[in-house]
Amino acid sequence: MKLLQCPVNGIRPVSEFTYGGEYREMPDADTCSDKEWATYVHHRHGAPGLKKEWWYHGPSGTWFIAERNTLTDKVSRTYLYGQENKA
């Protein structure tokens, strides 16, 4: 079973975590077109590659971002939201 590093709690087995979907920037809900909004809500990029993902450490209630290569399943780094530069 995979190991994942929570920025606050350290390395834990993936069973302690919940996957929270890909990290995506929300378009401006007031100004974007209907099509842009629908794409944001319903479409995802299926191609493999480096993705930013939301992960949640259950026992401590910590949300963080993991940068994971979905082809090799290697996580290059994890960080709390907003602390990308410190990672």
Partner: peptide, 12 residues
Amino acid sequence: LAMTSIAGVSVI
């Protein structure tokens, strides 16, 4: 201390 899971339950 650690916040982890024991027998499927979140614990400190």
